[in-house]
Design a protein around this nucleic acid. Structure first.
Lengths: 202, 202
DNA sequence: GTCTATATTACGATAGAC
DNA sequence: GTCTATCGTAATATAGAC
């Protein structure tokens, strides 16, 4: 769909980012050309460089934006109080947030290798600070005697890996709704770390 | 390192596969060129085509070989008897097997999108059959009353995601040995699914 | 089995007109 | 802000000599 000439900065900018995100997630950063992005946006390849200095910056901005969104959304959660409630809130938040933006989650895991070393360090730092928040919850729970976790750092990564895994199989309209999935995962996380596991009805 | 002319089929073949595996894992399939593989192997690019009909087949053979190895190695495990012992064996086996071949594991998760649809279906089928084995263990445990799992299929994927996550952070020579990591993860898996959780010394 | 050479296509990025 | 045109480079894969 060739675009006739004219100025469309306000609409083209977001479209470039959205299209790049979708194509990077589907085919991989290295496999997607600037020409391909331009074609789907509906402009010529040269016009993309009004919105990004180069392809690498396009990738970095998408990853950086995702991590910033994640940290901000998590920080905006209300104070849950006790460690057990904090952990439940974290688990449910993580599943919902990641469910809502599968493409951004996908490239944030898959395209780290295609970042320059400097850009990689930035994203890694943000990811670590997210992990640290869960680790802190676990440590507070251990101190309070409600969690039994010998290695909070490792347990944090294990929990995050498990929760993020929902994105690999969950499909809208399947047998289970997202709230049901939340419940199942929260139950497993709870039992994996709590001193006194939840009581189930027989 | 330019190679002088001559015949080296027996040594070059494995080197092509090993080099491709390492480079694909480090930089991604799409970002690695046949010239780059050839340079590291020590031959000219054209010579690679004595060992693979094309780049896609090289990727597919690596992934197929990895999945075949995984299923064969798992099938070769001795019969553990009861579901709880089977689950423990699965968890420890999974961690060790994946730890031993991080590059193959990495590309098996990351490069699925770069397979042709036909090749993708083959790999997916093998992966599903591995998941099915864990699901079967969980179902047997539920029947025996030793596991409390409402959704064995989902629990299987959650457990596999958690265990595979070890590869993202474990480094040889770190604070914890692999047997120690095995212990920590098995404990979490155990507590997440068992009806009566393990008793820890105070 | 490996080499050199090449056919063919595509890439990221830029220049200058409108 | 977008277009057309292009520079310089590199990609996969093949052909034919040794």
């Amino acid at each position: 769909m060739a675009r006739t000439q004219g100025s469309h900065s306000d609409i083209t900018g977001p479209r470039v980012r959205d299209t790049a995100l979708r194509l990077f997630a589907r085919h991989g950063y290295a496999a997607v050309s600037m020409r391909q992005i331009a074609r789907e946006v509906g402009v010529q390849a040269g016009a993309l460089y009004n919105y990004t200095p180069d392809k690498q910056s396009l990738l970095f901005d998408l990853l950086k934006g995702h991590m910033d969104d994640l940290l901000a959304a998590h920080a905006a959660q209300p104070d849950a109080g006790a460690p057990l409630a904090e952990l439940e809130q974290f688990a449910r938040f993580h599943i919902r947030f990641h469910h809502d933006r599968p493409d951004a989650v996908f490239i944030s895991y898959m395209e780290l290798r295609n970042l320059t070393p400097e850009n990689f360090e930035v994203i890694e730092g943000l990811r670590r600070s997210y992990e640290d928040r869960l680790e802190a919850i676990l440590r507070r729970g251990v101190e309070a005697g409600v969690f039994d976790v010998a290695e909070p750092k490792i347990a944090a990564m294990a929990v995050i890996a498990m929760l993020t895994g929902v994105n690999t199989w969950f499909r809208e309209g399947g047998r289970l709704s997202l709230p049901e999935v939340e419940e199942i995962y929260w139950d497993m996380v709870h039992r994996a770390v709590a001193t006194s596991p939840p009581q189930h009805p027989a």
